[in-house]
């Protein structure tokens, strides 16, 4: 080492001669952790293929001794309203997303590019509301929906989320950085303010909107709290609510079908994640620092 003429070159040369023990050690630790992290997913999958008798023997085998095929998946789809849950999940998550985008984009544009009286107050309210989770206004919202006779409906499941202050905040950041000169060019070209927003400015913020879409869909597909409060009927239940109810009814006797159901309900988002990892991670961690 001391003979190496160039200090910077020495570690690289050394690493070519010796095995990179540090790297191997890190890999070993990470492999162990990866196994631990994946274990619940593995259990979920493998249990959905095990026969009941095997489940209740006090021995653990890595693979099912007797392969049940898609038996539990078929059972899960035919005997419980899994597909209905998924349909509801899609309707509610997309309905919320569409409303959030339609309301947040104009407001964010006004906050980003217009000067008007009350703008700072509105911005302050948005920032305050950012910190308030759904559990805070839940009681009055429930009473209000009940008074209007709207409980147990898609509308009730969606309405508290029609406004996303997070979307407003995020889009405002994105719109602010849109060049004023292009907006002015559009005004000279004769576009209306509404057309400038939707046809000129919004296309420039597609990445931010896509990231928010991932964030919003994940959040509301997975939400248990609010559906638990306002949804009663089976045919309106979202995947988490349906699974919670279903698991309860089954009371642990049919683990195979339960795990099959869990797999089916978890699969869509996981697939999206695997296919578009970068965008997905960006969307989900958006609440974090950039």
């Amino acid at each position: 080492m001391a003979a190496a003429p160039n200090h910077r070159a020495s570690p690289r040369r050394a690493s070519r001669r010796r095995l990179p023990w540090g790297q191997i050690g890190t890999h070993l630790v990470l492999l162990l952790l990866a196994v631990l992290f994946l274990f619940p997913f593995y259990v979920m999958l493998v249990t959905s293929f095990r026969s009941p008798s095997e489940l209740f023997t006090p021995e653990f085998h890595l693979l099912p001794q007797e392969f049940t095929g898609l038996k539990y998946y078929i059972e899960s789809i035919t005997t419980s309203p899994v597909l209905t849950f998924m349909k509801n999940g899609v309707i509610i998550a997309l309905g919320i997303l569409v409303m959030q985008i339609l309301t947040a984009i104009p407001c964010a544009y006004a906050l980003a590019k217009f000067e008007f009286r009350g703008r700072n107050l509105l911005l302050a309210l948005v920032i305050f509301a950012l910190t308030v989770p759904i559990q805070v206004p839940a009681l009055p919202l429930y009473l209000g929906l009940n008074a209007l006779g709207l409980l147990d409906s898609y509308f009730a499941a969606m309405v508290p989320f029609f406004l996303s202050v997070f979307a407003i905040f995020l889009f405002r950041q994105s719109f602010k950085s849109y060049p004023d000169e292009i907006i002015q060019a559009a005004r000279l070209d004769g576009l209306s303010e509404w057309a400038i927003l939707w046809r000129i400015v919004v296309p420039g913020s597609i990445p931010a909107i896509a990231a928010f879409a991932v964030f919003s869909i994940t959040t509301h597909w997975n939400d248990l709290y609010w559906p638990l409060i306002v949804i009663r009927s089976n045919e309106l239940m979202t995947p988490p609510l349906g699974l919670a109810t279903f698991a309860d009814v089954e009371s642990g006797e049919n683990y195979g079908a339960l795990m099959a159901t869990a797999t089916i309900l978890t699969a869509p988002l996981m697939l999206v994640f695997m296919l578009a990892q970068r965008q997905f991670v960006r969307g989900v961690t958006m609440t974090g620092v950039k």
């Binding site: 060049p179 000169e181 292009i182 002015q184 060019a185 559009a186 005004r187 000279l188 070209d189 004769g190 576009l191 000129i200 296309p203 420039g204």
Partner: peptide, 20 residues
């Protein structure tokens, strides 16, 4: 008159082309 009715065209320093 608002800009669209003035019948004036402008070329901006940054060109201000619609990027999309």
């Amino acid at each position: 008159l608002p800009p669209r009715e003035r019948d004036i065209a402008m070329v901006f320093q940054s060109y201000a082309l619609y990027p999309h």
